[in-house]
């Protein structure tokens, strides 16, 4: 058992965990933070996306012990204009992928603001504008089986600076 301390959604938490416990299960099962969802547990769907020190990661492939001392933000700790934009643009249906989509979008916007290129960027040395094509590429790690992609992209587009 390993003892870890994290800030989760602004609150100091500590837990004694087996090393094999994923950050996702630490949040969901040990800490009762059920916003992040388990869709595949294999890094293929994005439903478990959370922000760690402001960066988006997949909590299912993260061992919680590796994040000792980190600041973790899940959907429960998010207060962002994207949330209302998702509702306005119907950027979800069942809502299961939504916590991951929103956390991912927040991380993605920060990456873009820092000038990061993407696979959709024509010239990687430059600073790409956040076109719909760029948004779609950068959000492609978040599956939505209900097919609310149009609404998600519209919501992000509306909120992006």
């Amino acid at each position: 058992m390993v003892e870890i301390r994290m800030r989760v959604n602004g609150a100091e938490v500590s837990a004694e965990l087996e090393a094999r416990v994923s950050l996702l299960d630490a949040l969901r099962v040990r800490l009762g933070v059920t916003g992040p969802k388990k869709g595949c547990d294999q890094g293929a769907c994005g439903a478990c996306t959370v922000l760690v020190d402001g960066r988006r990661i997949l909590s299912c492939l993260a061992l919680a012990v590796q994040y000792d001392g980190s600041e973790v933000t899940t959907i429960e700790g998010v207060d962002h204009p994207l949330q209302a934009a998702f509702v306005r643009h119907d950027g979800f249906q069942c809502g299961y992928c939504t916590p991951g989509q929103i956390c991912s979008a927040i991380g993605m916007l920060a990456e873009h603001a820092a000038g990061a290129p993407s696979a959709a960027t024509e010239h990687v040395a430059g600073a790409p504008a956040l076109t719909r094509t760029e948004i779609r590429e950068r959000m492609s790690g978040n599956l939505c089986r209900c097919g609310a992609y149009n609404g998600i992209v519209a919501a992000i587009e509306e909120v992006a600076p």
Binding site: T34, G35, V78, Q83, A84, V87, G95
Partner: peptide, 21 residues
């Protein structure tokens, strides 16, 4: 009209079958 559960679904408040303690 916006979905009645929109705010719940975008804030993590919605509970699915394995979210119940």
């Amino acid at each position: 009209v916006d979905r009645v559960d929109g705010t719940a679904k975008t804030s993590g408040a919605v509970r699915f079958s394995t979210d119940y303690p």
